[in-house]
Simulated scan of single mutants.
Amino acid sequence: MQRTSRMKRELMLLTTEPPPGITCWQNGGQLDDLRAQIVGGADTPYEKGIFNLELIIPERYPFEPPKIRFLTPIYHPNIDTAGRICLDILKLPPKGAWRPSLNISTVLTSIQLLMSEPNPDDPLMADISSEYKYNKQMFLKNAALWTEKHALQSKENLAAPTQGASPPSVCTSVSSQKRQGASVPGASKKACLGP
């Protein structure tokens, strides 16, 4: 019951005050199965890309973190080919940094920040991490090519939410949290344990 009322509040807030460049909605009217879209940040190789994510909310939420993966392929040191994300707030302590005070909005904002600022020292993809560290130009080129191939879409092609959820609105001007100086609590990018 606690999870249901909290999820309803979180979804209402995500609908009325979404973080810049992020939308989230219920998939098929289910509170434990969500979809989200993150618009790639300006001045990154993901710029103008629209990245779809799947969020599965566990029974014990908020005492357990949501399970999140990218559905859109992305070329990134901390996101593998299955879409799994290396981010400490997606794991429970002691090796992770999840805490019940965090919410879906914070997690999605942290993932958006990770897209802009990869952590090559704690990778899921060793080859991409090495390229990011030692051949940045090649990394930027490959990441931009993947974005062009997999994430550039017109509004008509976006996955439409079902059962009464409002369709995601796509923000074209994404303000970077980095430029605004905003810090996301618990969003350090350490303690990658893989899947």
Rank of each mutant, 00 (worst) to 15 (best):
N157E: 14
A97C: 00
N157I: 07
I111T: 01
P100L: 03
N157W: 12
I104F: 03
W146M: 08
I111M: 00
K141A: 06
A159V: 08
A97I: 00
Q163G: 06
Q153H: 09
A144M: 09
D127Y: 00
P118W: 15
K155C: 13
L108H: 05
L108E: 09
L140S: 10
P100K: 02
L113E: 03
M125K: 08
M125N: 10
L152C: 10
N142S: 12
T106G: 00
E156V: 08
P118L: 07
A160C: 06
N119A: 13
E117F: 11
N103I: 10
A160V: 10
K155H: 13
A151W: 10
Q163W: 14
E148P: 03
K133C: 01
A160K: 11
E156G: 11
T106P: 00
V107L: 01
E131H: 04
M115W: 05
S130W: 01
Y134C: 02
V107M: 01
S166G: 10
L108K: 04
L124C: 04
T162H: 05
S129W: 02
A160M: 08
L114Y: 03
N142P: 11
S101I: 00
L114C: 04
A97Y: 01
K155E: 13
S166L: 07
I128S: 11
H150N: 15
S154D: 15
A151M: 14
Q153V: 10
Q163C: 12
A165N: 02
K155V: 12
S116F: 07
Y132S: 05
H150E: 13
Y134S: 07
W146H: 15
G164L: 14
M125L: 13
M115P: 05
Q163I: 09
P123L: 01
A151Y: 14
T147D: 15
P161W: 06
P100Q: 02
Q137E: 07
